[in-house]
Design a protein around this nucleic acid. Structure first.
Lengths: 240, 240
DNA sequence: AGCTATCATATTGTAGACAATTTAGTCTGC
DNA sequence: GCAGACTAAATTGTCTACAATATGATAGCT
């Protein structure tokens, strides 16, 4: 498939010929990566992207730099930009970081969540359920991540929310790379359980359920070095 | 003082006329901000920085973009880059995020820290003590931050370490902005207490001490809207 | 064949030129 | 004196051309 095809979003049929803004380009590349229309490892050549979006290389460059800082792309000096392909180690680090943050977040949320917030959470969980019955794998993965970001929003801490944004995006990549083909990402709706605990204002339960949820997602993955990018050639061929 | 003066680092008397690399420029600007030779709110004009470092604007641009992503500088579209001047709200968010991460980190570290690691921690604490007796305020603030980053390194999780890097850098700015002039940042050596708990392999104590430490630092600040950048004019003059 | 050196190609890194934008200052008419 | 429009200066946003670099191909030598 062409790069243009991979990046094309339905419904954005802009008829104006104003060049795409940095923000738009960023959004479109991100969703292409998250929904893995651009699979891990894909090289993103600046000039080609520039042609696709009808802009110069400089705009593409700022987008790629930003993506690199969020670890969604890997920038190799003088070599180019590649869609990130998290190693097993990185994957474990992502879950490690999430375990550090999210149970505490769930505990915090009990104090902050208004009834409106809880309504929004329920709404989101319903969307997830719909995607699950429709068996729309892409939507399931995306919505699963967004649930956690939504929790961040409710707590209202910018930094935490941005960290979660980053960590959940990477989790999407990780799931794509390491999911054991058997079962989909979040088999039962553990998110609903968490929302229930929040509504009961049971902070400890929410934290516990969150931790269980993260452990569950991680353990449902097949986290062994296989086709992961950056195979450690040393380890493979050195007897030492 | 001139911009060149603010950015000049003693001891880096490079005699080669090779232009500064992006990395070097980044490092030098960061330390200038952290040690507040570039105080919060300072505008960083691309062309002037380019002249100081003897490079074109593009390199400066990538550095500024990176700093903006780490929230050490604020990038205002079509207006320019300014050294970050965290609002009270942002300051509270920083501490909120740290409270979420670091107690858990302290608990984790009990499992990972080797005797070598603990030695390194002690060494660091000693440096802090030295800076404190020498009354070297800049060094105290910098080393205080580095202690927490060091904990991240020991746990060995890249993401967590980078988050801490970002959060502690911002904390340096916050301390500069909001420190009540009375007492220095970390009055007693709470870091040493934490190291002791780690050595005793008492995870709960380490976590508890870390939380106490963070609360202590935050409460020693004078976190009320005063001269914080971005004064909310609406709130000031609108009766509503 | 196998190895090395050289060259060709593709791609990024950087600088500089120009356009777009913001800001502040100035002028004019009232 | 003051509101508004216009102008001028400073600064960023973007594009494009060129240099530097990495990678793969080719040719020649042993």
């Amino acid at each position: 498939m062409t790069l243009a095809g991979q990046l094309h979003q339905m419904g954005t049929g802009k008829t104006t010929d104003a060049p795409a803004s940095v923000h738009d380009i960023y959004e479109r590349v991100v969703s292409a990566i998250i929904e893995h229309r651009l699979p891990p490892g894909t090289q993103l050549v600046e000039e080609k992207l520039a042609a696709v979006f009808g802009v110069g290389r400089s705009r593409i460059r700022t987008v790629l730099a930003r993506l690199a800082h969020e670890k969604l792309v890997l920038l190799q000096r003088n070599r180019g930009a590649f869609v990130a392909s998290p190693s097993v180690e990185q994957a474990r680090h992502v879950f490690g970081a999430r375990r550090l943050i999210e149970p505490g977040l769930a505990r915090l949320i009990i104090e902050r969540a208004t009834q409106t917030d809880i309504g929004r959470l329920r709404e989101h969980v319903a969307k997830e359920q719909a995607a699950r019955t429709a068996n729309d794998r892409r939507a399931i993965i995306r919505l699963s991540g967004e649930f956690h970001v939504l929790l961040g929003h409710i707590v209202g801490n910018t930094f935490v929310t941005e960290m979660l944004q980053e960590l959940t995006s990477l989790t999407c990549l990780i799931i794509v790379l390491y999911d054991s083909p058997a079962l989909p990402a979040c088999p039962h709706n553990e998110h609903a359980d968490i929302v229930n605990a929040v509504e009961r204002r049971d902070g400890e339960a929410a934290a516990r359920l969150m931790l269980k949820h993260l452990d569950h997602v991680e353990s449902s993955l097949h986290l062994v070095d296989q086709d992961s990018r950056e195979i450690d050639l040393e380890a493979v061929f050195n007897k030492a």
